[in-house]
Amino acid sequence: MLGTASQSSLSKMDQSALAVLERFPGYFRTYEEQETLTQGLKRHIPVNQTFDSANCSVEFNVPRDVPWCVLTPATEDFHSCCVTTIRYESPAFKVDYTGVNRTLAVFGKQRQFFRSETCEQVSGCQICVCRIEEVLYTAVYDTGEAGSDTRYGVSFFNFNGCCKCYNEG
């Protein structure tokens, strides 16, 4: 079962580590478990809805030198000029939202993985600027104070999220 430590690794952990694993069972996985999840998440869901510019009654500034585009994307519109690659990372250290560098909790082979994306702009695409949106994930961190009730904590951490195309014109 994903997120469940093996019996041999459980017997070697202290009680506070076991309590964290019990409280946050979906947070921790081995590299092998993460690879299985990643392969299962690589689905391409087709979109059956498109814009028909002939039926659009909203007024937009239309760049006449871009024949395939009849609408200028708004600030929040997604556009195909941007290319993204999804990966999952498992950092040992990460600065949280308050600016504190934290050691992320690891229990044997059980680690925390976070979805992160890269962002590149297609060469020659000038209709927009590609930018990464940050996302917040919660993660369990380890203070290193063995035997302490405050050894483990939870905080928010920024990661690279979705790659989007923004009109800055």
Results as ranks from 00 to 15, higher is better:
Q112P: 00
E33N: 02
G161V: 03
K109Y: 09
R64I: 12
V135W: 03
C82E: 03
G26L: 10
T98Y: 12
P46I: 06
S6H: 02
S116H: 05
T36K: 10
L21C: 01
A54S: 15
P46C: 07
C128L: 12
G26T: 10
V129M: 12
D65P: 00
S80A: 13
F113G: 00
G161R: 01
G3Y: 03
F159D: 01
N158P: 13
L41Q: 08
D52V: 12
V122P: 00
P25C: 02
P25V: 04
F28L: 02
Q126H: 14
N158L: 14
K94P: 01
Q15P: 02
S57H: 10
Y27G: 00
N55I: 04
S123E: 13
F51P: 00
Q15E: 15
L71F: 13
S6I: 04
V62G: 00
E76P: 00
N167W: 07
R115Q: 14
G169Q: 06
F156H: 12
V106G: 00
S80G: 11
S8P: 10
S8D: 15
A5L: 11
N158S: 14
P91R: 06
H44G: 10
E133Q: 13
T38I: 04
S6K: 06
C130L: 11
A139L: 07
T72I: 08
A17P: 02
K109W: 04
D52W: 03
F114T: 02
A139T: 05
G153F: 09
L37H: 05
F156W: 12
H44A: 13
G40D: 03
G169F: 08
R115F: 00
N48V: 09
